[in-house]
Design a protein around this nucleic acid. Structure first.
Lengths: 134, 134
DNA sequence: CAGGATCCCAGCTGATACTG
DNA sequence: CAGTATCAGCTGGGATCCTG
């Protein structure tokens, strides 16, 4: 025996890794933040309470499905709050919770870093591309 | 006519949005950071210089392909440096650049936020799930 | 107005095999 | 040792149609 192939070991490692990732808060958060629409939604809500259709209009190109999906996961995570007003067309307002606000702060920090260093990154890319014409 | 359907308008909006996103540094950065392996690689390299196979071993479950791909994009962005030593088996060392180090700092900030607030998120999820048995 | 349900395609991921 | 090349599978996201 001892036929522990590299593949088997990697498979095992992957299982461990997956379990680890699922339990890893920072990675979960990263996944959330980078989710295609999450950043936009949070940014939009930083401007105050918004209705569903306001968000749909303000965030260019989002489909109803993705908007709803995004809002739902954010609501589930306690990042935003959803308020239904049973008037005659229904009215639903979304807002940032305190937790969401603190997350928005973090997002701003990331944005600042990006804006500060983006020129460096751009230059690095250009250098790399001219050096590796592939 | 004026048959500008909702779909058409969304399509147009989507084009604008895509162009916007491609030009948006913070969103690009977010995408990078949340990339499945990027966080792990940066974390691994925070411990100092590492060889290709070291990284492959330290990061459980990564395939050679993804490891290479991740390293390449990070190198292109000027986040890590790649040093080839043409000995008789070849030897390649990876390291964080100053830019990469500052990014690692940001990553740490995200990690701290996640660890600080994860319990709140977990609680919010539990509440949401018990309230919405679907 | 605010969504739910369904179908479907593209792209990324990963496994495997091969090379300088 | 440090990759590259190829192929298959899955999942995310959008389009579309429908409801309370």
């Amino acid at each position: 025996m001892a036929t522990t192939t590299a593949a088997q070991r990697r498979e095992q490692a992957r299982a461990d890794y997956d379990a680890f990732l699922r339990a890893c808060p920072s990675h979960q958060l990263l996944g959330r933040l980078s989710d295609k629409w999450v950043g936009l939604v949070i940014a939009a809500l930083s401007g105050g309470t918004k209705r569903y259709s306001d968000l749909g209009r303000q965030i260019a190109g989002v489909s109803p499905k993705m908007l709803t999906q995004t809002l739902r996961t954010l609501e589930r995570d306690g990042i935003i709050s959803r308020t239904v007003t049973p008037s005659v067309p229904v009215r639903v307002d979304y807002d940032l919770t305190p937790l969401g606000t603190s997350l928005a702060t973090l997002l701003t920090a990331v944005k600042d870093w990006a804006e500060t260093h983006f020129e460096e990154v751009r230059a690095a890319r250009e250098r790399y591309d001219t050096e590796n014409p592939t």
